[in-house]
Amino acid sequence: MEISDWRQKIDELDEQIVRLINQRAEAAKAIGRLKQESSLPVYEPKREQVVFEHVRRSNPGPLSDNEVVDIFERIIDVMRALQKNPD
């Protein structure tokens, strides 16, 4: 494959990633609404550790586990902000 072919493949993958992140955001907003109704805290460090462990176990590479966790730390930061204002 040529560079242009790989770039097209990356563009297609990026579109899939955007769709999945938005689906995750909808779920986070729904959880945020439930947390508000139940007066639960948005920040749950134990749950975040569970997520990080899960993505580590799910990681086939070539990214290292630390790199995957770095990505998910940023995703969770954004999702946490959504949960603070879920509407």
Rank of each mutant, 00 (worst) to 15 (best):
K9W: 09
I10H: 15
I10A: 13
I10R: 15
I10S: 12
E12M: 11
L13M: 11
L13H: 14
D14Y: 00
D14Q: 02
D14T: 07
D14H: 01
Q16W: 01
R19M: 07
R19G: 12
L20D: 13
I21T: 12
I21R: 08
N22A: 08
Q23T: 12
Q23G: 10
Q23R: 10
R24E: 09
A25V: 01
A27Q: 12
A28S: 08
K29D: 09
K29T: 04
I31R: 14
R33L: 14
L34Q: 15
K35F: 00
K35S: 06
S38P: 00
S39M: 11
L40S: 12
L40W: 02
P41A: 09
Y43Q: 04
Y43S: 04
Y43H: 13
E44P: 00
K46E: 14
K46G: 02
E48M: 01
E48C: 04
Q49G: 07
E53F: 02
H54M: 11
H54G: 13
H54K: 11
V55C: 05
V55K: 03
V55I: 14
R57Y: 06
S58R: 12
N59H: 04
P60I: 00
G61C: 04
G61K: 08
L63M: 07
S64W: 01
D65P: 03
N66D: 15
N66V: 03
E67F: 05
V68W: 01
V68T: 06
V69W: 06
D70Q: 05
R74K: 12
I75R: 02
I76A: 05
M79W: 05
M79V: 04
R80Q: 03
R80F: 00
A81L: 14
A81S: 08
L82P: 02
K84G: 04
K84H: 03
N85T: 06
P86L: 14
